[in-house]
Design a protein around this nucleic acid. Structure first.
Length: 830
RNA sequence: GCCCGAGUGAUGGAAUUGGUAGACAUACCGGACUUAAAAUCCGGAGGCCGUAAGGCUGUGCGGGUUCAAGUCCCGCCUUGGGCACCA
């Protein structure tokens, strides 16, 4: 009996499929459990990262199923997007053809791995039956005022030929191709994610139990709430005033100059007719032409130029020179900063460089009196207010409140909150995406498509352009249309939606994926949502996970569902590395899952991915590691092969204490039950598959050690049969084909896939002997083997009688004897 | 600068949340089987000293709390990640 993974894996995949073993229904008397992995982008082939991600999810799905849950475990394809479009152009084919071919290929690979998906629920986002609902949402967003068009400078990737959302710009570079992102003025569609900023932030508190801390921290950071005040500074000699956002209104008495961004809307008006108008204009242009990445670099030298104009400090009446400065961001706050050099490091450097006045207005209690002349850096710390008129002597936190009150009383400003989060630009200038369902009509303006006309189909009979630009603006058959309102001639929007829109609601579509009358039914959503366990890479910590959270809140407000959060629990799995580096084709350090499956079988590949490290951590792919996994699988196979025919086909944990009369049988039975407990706890509580597997390995190792002796005893054979059966059950979520095959060969009629998780018994866990550790002054000196019932006094007596303990107590006086029941005795002496 | 993590054998990693540090595996060494090798089965192993029994030492560094610290507290060092001239 030889282990042949290729043969048995194909066999069981077929049987499971025929029997619909992993199908699930939208109603059940079992409790529901929704287990979801981030769906793949159909790039062509599955890589090891996918295998790891889906192996983790599959263990969870199987385990929950075995524990009696109705488990939804679906899969689909994030099928629109630029890489497919580029690849198709490169290979002289159509993106649709390319994408569907990739899906076919990758689906076959996933099936070859034996994952327990309900394939009836498979979706592809490029299918009109999917994106039509997204177009419906677009119209609803528009109706609710959550979607608007705006002309503004946008992040533009020259290589991808499209705009990018803020979340898609990483340190000034395109997240996808690393090109330097440029600014380009365009009219674009924006989703008002900022309307939900407060809720997106607050609800992170509800995720604290289920999400990794760092993902929550990253989202908090990204949303970036700042509480402060807006203060208006009147411009001297003109009706205009400059609003400023500050979190430090308590320092307003120290504001000695004003700095504004080069793109500030008032700049032209301010400098018109002044003597250095041209110089300031040139300076501002220079800043605007510097790329964003350079401007945000740490090393940027602070530069500025005086505009020649002044504004007035509303609290001191002081004339504050207005400067244009290269460090002021036009898009944050109001694009202007009040300069308080004593208490802000940037302002300090700027004031020193240009000889602007520095005035201390906060004196920390812990510091000697501050003197601007001798300061060499700003002091942002808390303290007592000074040089601040009637506010002198107040704690500055109290001062923030009092100054804000004063601003509001006198109409000089108000309390405000500023967010780092920007609205989400969802327009893309590329072809392979969902069409935006609006038309532009000369008579009616911007008009949404009628619901009954959806979907607005993406035309497939176009020829993509070599330069990557969308063919849609050159396709009259697509853009020429009738206005849905007046019936007159109109032009259809030719931009498509950001593909992150598709991934913001796919988890909801899985609940009712074949519904052709609605995106989903409220009943199915109410039953399945939220996702109980979501599993994927941490690279989506902000992008996808933030958008999806926003979408669910918006859909909730449209009345579709009750949940406010899509994912109750999140597991971010680590990467599969090679030689400590990320696998990549260009570096040539990749491992092809298909090749590994061909060599070792799917069960071995799955086992290795789960055993190499805890799921959150990165791990290195190693040849010896996969060999080790293969060796263990074979070891289980050989154990079973030897026992089949000699031991009865037992159910797991079915041997009795009478069966286990031999000491080694008792030991094996104890281990069997202890392993059920340990493996169950490791998988359920902490997703520590590596230690769960280690525990099963221990059980297998023990079975090897005791089998020869137990085979000669009838009760021993039963004990072995039970232990083997248990081993297969525990291993089933990890290496399902192996376990089904061996269970069948043992003579069992039912399928592993229909079996519950084994249940251990406390009585089998009880030990008759216990090991007591003996310490003298906290150092290990000896151990004792005592029967479990030994009482405390007897244990102490035994401990003090131990030869090695007595040796170490020689010449010392015993001060205290500490006893930890069932564990140790520590004799304290000096 | 701010916010999260992480530092344990040659290696990946364990340690019931304060109670025998190094489970399990990889690599290594030894034994059995074999004409031989591979595979397999069994065994060894943190470091130093010792034939052994045993002793000393050991979880990034320095202090502390405790009968007892990888685990808790204080101060550092190194390192990974996120955000950032955000006013």
């Amino acid at each position: 009996m030889k282990y042949n993974p290729q043969e048995i894996e194909g066999k069981w995949q077929k049987i499971w499929e025929e029997r619909g073993s992993f199908h699930c229904e939208n109603a059940s008397d079992k409790p529901k459990y929704y287990c979801l992995e981030m769906f793949p982008y159909p790039s062509g082939k599955i890589h090891m990262g996918h295998v790891r991600n889906y192996s983790i999810a599959d263990v969870v799905a199987h385990f929950k199923r075995m524990q009696g849950f109705n488990v939804l475990h679906p899969i689909g394809w994030d099928a629109f997007g630029l890489p497919a479009e580029n690849a198709a152009i490169q290979h002289d084919t159509h993106p649709a053809k390319w994408t569907y071919a990739n899906i076919d290929n990758m689906r076959a690979q996933l099936k070859r791995l034996g994952f327990s998906y309900d394939w009836r629920r498979e979706i592809a986002t490029c299918d009109p039956e999917y994106y039509r609902w997204e177009q419906l949402f677009f119209i609803k967003f528009l109706e609710k005022g959550l979607l608007y068009r705006k002309k503004a400078p946008q992040n533009w990737c020259p290589k991808c030929n499209t705009v990018l959302a803020n979340e898609q710009v990483v340190e000034g570079l395109c997240w996808r191709c690393d090109s330097v992102v440029e600014q380009k003025e365009l009219t674009q569609w924006f989703l008002r994610i900022t309307d939900y900023a407060e809720e997106l932030l607050a609800d992170l508190d509800t995720l604290e139990k289920g999400w990794p801390e760092r993902v929550i921290a990253m989202q908090r950071n990204w949303i970036g709430k700042s509480i402060g005040a807006e203060i208006r500074f009147a411009v001297e000699g003109g009706g205009a005033s400059i609003p400023v956002f500050t979190t430090r209104q308590d320092t307003v008495f120290g504001a000695s100059f004003m700095s504004i961004a080069a793109a500030h809307p008032l700049l032209d008006e301010l400098i018109a007719g002044t003597e250095n108008e041209q110089a300031v204009r040139d300076f501002a242009r220079k800043i605007l032409n510097t790329d964003k990445r350079e401007l945000s670099a740490d090393s940027l030298e602070k530069e500025g130029m005086f505009t020649g104009r002044y504004c007035l400090n509303p609290f001191t009446g002081e004339r504050m020179p207005i400067w244009v400065a290269n460090f002021v961001l036009a898009e944050y706050g109001s694009g202007a900063v009040m300069g308080v050099p004593a208490h802000d490091q940037r302002d300090f450097e700027f004031a020193r460089k240009y000889g602007l006045p520095i005035r201390v207005v906060i004196q920390p209690d812990s510091m000697p009196p501050l003197d601007p002349a001798s300061m060499n850096e700003a002091v942002p710390e808390s303290g007592r207010m000074v040089n601040s008129g009637e506010f002198n002597g107040l704690d500055n936190e109290e001062g923030k409140i009092r100054i804000a009150d004063r601003l509001e009383e006198q109409g000089l400003g108000k309390r405000t909150v500023n967010w780092r989060l920007r609205d989400w630009n969802v327009s893309r200038q590329r072809y392979w995406g969902a069409p935006i369902p609006v038309v532009y009509c000369d008579a009616c303006g911007v008009v949404p498509e009628k619901e009954e006309n959806l979907p607005v189909l993406l035309p497939l009979d176009v020829v993509t352009r070599k330069d990557g630009r969308s063919p849609l603006p050159d396709t009259p058959a697509f853009y020429e249309c009738a206005c849905p309102r007046c019936g007159g001639k109109a032009r259809r929007e030719t931009d498509t939606l950001d593909t992150f829109v598709e991934s913001s609601w796919y988890f909801a579509r899985y609940t009712d994926p074949n519904n052709s009358a609605a995106p989903f039914t409220p009943k199915a959503l109410a039953y399945w949502m939220p996702v109980d366990q979501y599993i994927g890479g941490v690279e989506h910590a902000i992008l996808h996970l933030l958008y999806a959270r926003f979408f669910v809140k918006a859909l909730r407000d449209f009345g579709y569902l009750e949940a406010s959060e899509p994912f109750a629990n999140l597991l971010t799995q680590g990467m599969v590395l090679m030689d400590g580096k990320k696998m990549s084709k260009s570096k040539g350090n990749t491992v092809d899952p298909t090749e590994m499956i061909a060599r070792y079988g799917a069960d071995t590949v799955r086992l290795f991915c789960l055993f190499a490290a805890p799921p959150e951590r990165d791990f290195d792919w190693t040849e010896s590691g996969i060999e080790g996994a293969f060796r263990f699988i074979n070891r289980v196979w050989r154990l079973a092969a030897e026992l089949i025919g000699k031991v009865p086909a037992q159910e797991p944990c079915s041997s009795t204490s009478e069966d286990a009369s031999l000491p080694k049988a008792r030991e094996l039975r104890h281990k069997e039950h202890a392993t059920v407990k340990k493996a169950g706890e490791d998988i359920a509580g902490k997703f520590q598959f590596n230690t769960a597997i280690a525990a099963v390995m221990e059980l297998v190792n023990l079975a090897y050690l005791v089998k020869d002796e137990l085979l000669g005893d009838e009760g021993g054979r039963k004990t072995l049969g039970s232990a083997l059966s248990t081993t297969l059950c525990l291993l089933f979520p990890i290496a399902p084909h192996l376990c089904e095959e061996l269970r069948q060969r043992m003579g069992s009629q039912s399928l592993m896939a229909d079996r519950p998780w084994p249940v251990y018994s406390d009585s089998a866990l009880a030990q008759d002997m216990m090991t007591i550790v003996l310490q003298v002054n906290g150092k290990l000196r000896s151990t004792l083997e005592l029967s479990a019932g030994t009482d405390a006094e007897a244990i102490k007596a035994e401990a003090l009688a131990d030869a090695n303990v007595r040796k170490h107590l020689e010449g010392l006086t015993i001060r205290k004897v500490v006893l930890v029941p069932g564990k140790l005795v520590n004799v304290v002496a000096n």
